[in-house]
């Protein structure tokens, strides 16, 4: 009889400890991760914040467009009665096209690169974010196959673009990007597709490592311009 009571007491104490631990766990998760609200309200707050950020982005983009049309208006006004100015401004357009400062379109391919399914939260061994060099190799491979313009998640690759892991994101043109990466390429769609799909090539390497890769040919790829500002602090133009 006495032994039985003792057992009950033990189970009671253990249950109590369990209860306390569970409630502490709940508190910690709610306090640190959800900032005091429940998961659903937190998600709603966040999606509202996301919409705000997106609208803000649209506003900023349209503002940029506005200013740019204003600029080109001034340019075309000035070039109407001055041949020299006209020459310079047409050269300017040419260099903007070369440098990646204009929206462009043409045939090409689109590559979707993503982590293996169900792998986002944990820092597993197979995470494209920590193997950014594979993205670099892919870009190099595309260049070798004659790519004329490349963008990753709408970030245009230009002459000073970096592709780099920082924290848990891949930073491209100083903007953190997360998988899935949508890589748009303009060039000969058959050559590009053949080059990346080469046997033991980059796509098959990626697939072997467990990543999700999809390559799609398209007749109409649109790539946006580089939106950052150009600042050269060290390099100066060499005059002959």
């Amino acid at each position: 009889m006495k032994k039985k009571n003792k057992n009950y007491l033990l189970i009671g104490i253990i249950s109590m400890i369990l209860g306390i631990i569970i409630s502490v766990q709940f508190r910690v998760v709610q306090g640190n991760f959800l900032e005091g609200s429940n998961p659903f309200t937190r998600l709603q707050e966040l999606s509202n914040a996301y919409t705000t950020v997106l609208t803000e982005r649209d506003v900023l983009l349209s503002e940029i467009d506005e200013y740019q049309t204003k600029l080109s208006e001034i340019e075309s006004d000035a070039s109407r009665d001055n041949i020299l100015v006209k020459n310079i401004s047409s050269q300017l357009e040419e260099y903007k096209l070369l440098g990646g400062f204009l929206d462009v379109q043409g045939e090409g391919i689109q590559i979707i690169l993503d982590n293996p399914v169900n792998d986002i939260g944990k820092s597993s061994d197979v995470n494209i974010i920590y193997e950014y060099d594979l993205i670099n190799i892919l870009v190099n491979e595309l260049n070798a196959a004659g790519a004329e313009a490349i963008s990753i998640n709408e970030e245009r690759i230009i002459s000073i673009s970096e592709i780099r892991t920082a924290g848990n994101a891949v930073v491209i043109n100083k903007v953190p990007q997360y998988p899935p990466f949508i890589i748009k390429v303009i060039g000969s769609k058959n050559t590009l597709e053949g080059a990346v799909n080469q046997r033991f090539g980059i796509v098959s390497t990626l697939r072997e490592m467990g990543y999700f890769v999809e390559v799609k040919k398209s007749d109409q790829i649109e790539i946006l311009k580089y939106n950052g500002i150009i600042e050269f602090n060290y390099a100066k133009t060499l005059k002959n």
Partner: peptide
């Protein structure tokens, strides 16, 4: 023009 030439990588630089 100089700025964009520089950024497009066409110009010789020092």
């Amino acid at each position: 023009l100089e700025k964009y030439k520089k950024a497009s990588g066409i110009d010789a630089l020092y």
